[in-house]
Design a protein around this nucleic acid. Sequence first.
RNA 1: GGCCAGUUGGUGAAGUGGCUUAACACACUGCCCUUUCACGGCAGCAUUCACGGAUUCGAAUUCCGUACUGGUCACCA
Length: 550
Amino acid sequence: MTNQDLANLIFPKVSSNILDYEKKYPKRNLKEGEVVTRVAPSPTGYMHLGTLFQALIDYILVKNRGGVFYLRNEDTDTKREVDGAIKLVMDTLEEYNIMPDEYEIDGKTIGSYGPYRQTKRKEIYHAFIKYLIEIGRAYPCFCTKEELDERKKQQEKNKVRTGYYGKYAKCRNLSLEEQAQKIKSGIPYVIRFKSEGDFNKKFIFNDLVKGKLELSENDEDFIIMKSSDKLPTYHFAHLVDDHLMGTTHVIRGEEWLPSVAKHIELFKTFGFKAPKYIHTPLIIKKEGNITRKLSKRKDPEAAMSYYKECGYPTLAIIESLMTIINSNYEEWHTKNPTCTYLDFTYSPKKMSSSGALYDLDKLKNISKNIISKMTKEELMEESFKWASLYSKELKDLIERDKDYYMGILNIEREQKKPRKDIAKYDEIMDNIWYMYDDVYKEHEKTYEWVGITSKEEINLITSTYMDKYFCLKDKESWFNGIKELSESLGYASNMKDYKENKENYKGSVADVSTVLRVALTSKSTTPDLYEIMTLLGKERIEKRYQSLEK
RNA sequence: GGCCAGUUGGUGAAGUGGCUUAACACACUGCCCUUUCACGGCAGCAUUCACGGAUUCGAAUUCCGUACUGGUCACCA
């Protein structure tokens, strides 16, 4: 009995070997400095902010240096797999405009380094595992769950490091005959990597974000192939896939740092060049005094669907992530206002190495700026798309009269210093409902009177205004009318004069304007009143003033 | 508990031995501008970089220790 015999016993059907696959997937033809990155989500039916975060870095790195960005479906955990999960990831990437160059979806494959789906790569993994068995660096392990638990318990009790290594690696010393015999008798087994590392020896690992790290060598005989479906574990799939697909830069979350030693040993054993690693900080959240990883269970904002539902422009999310990716991004962007985020040069070294807090306030601010710079047509279209999915009410209003809707949106827009009052599309309704008579009528509202609250005075102001001073010719004459109205009723029309001689007046033109505003919209804070009045027109204004309680 | 990483204001952070009386942005507060709200402008907001010690003429920046926080220790990725 030889290693070769054992390998053949375990993988009787594997005919191709490593060399065959390396021929089939030759080294990529890259120009100097070009990179190959990948986003490798597992299809759990959920698109995490962190996945987008990493994909964005992948994408930017490729935009910066040239090369290929691909998507690999890491579906080896068949228990957790959810139908349509990769579609969700792809759709999201598409929405955010960070499409991979190579991918596989609905049976359609783009790119020549596929399959881009791990369950379809089983044979390939088997060839690599077979090789490992042949050279005596992998072996079948027959330990049961109970045995493993017991081992761990003993280790904890004896205060030694837990894990399947050294003398605790029970199955590594089984003779080939014993192994063959057990396999033949149908005992379930996994394949473990036979480590030659020494935990007490250190090696230098250079992470592109964290810098040089001194890590202990791996000495664990970790599992590389599962028993039930014969699929590889992450560690092994990482080795095979990233080698064959030619990944130059692996961008993944910091939670992978503890397994780096395993990966390095694996690459070394095969004599493959390991990719460069960018371990990104985790996106964290603060809850009271506790800081923790964004959790998909507890935090709605961990899911990309959250941002879609609220109606944040995708660019706002991207820009806010950019500020986390490299904190000099904003400064760069204000200096280069015509550039897009794709023109920015990403530097892993400048990335913060502590957890990144995703700040929704910051997002809102960025989003307000982006929305304020949209043209009325853009905003109409974007908000319509959103409303079609999430707000029938708004959708109906837009469809009723798109021009009128754009007119409302255009108040204090398309000017040098546009108004910034919308952070997400679900806020639009709050800002425009009073511009529609039927909605206004039905809307539950309290008039936000400020200063002047007497009903008689309010009625006096509105009726005098409509009778004698109403004018919509242009903004200047409109405002002159309000000034004259103010004076005729004993209010100051000149603010400076008012401030100096308050006792001479009942109030100022500001108070009068507020009355006209609140009486018309019920709100004390609205955009420019002249434009609102122009859109509404005299008749409707008059009606609203008349319908006020006497 | 072992291993690894991190710790600068309310938040994200810049900063790699003197140019830092700690940049920039968000948030907050005040003032100015203004018919309101906003926008914009100005100003304020860490005498100090988790704590203790060491090195140095000089440290947020180097070293050691402590504390705290996070990650990880699966036939999950």
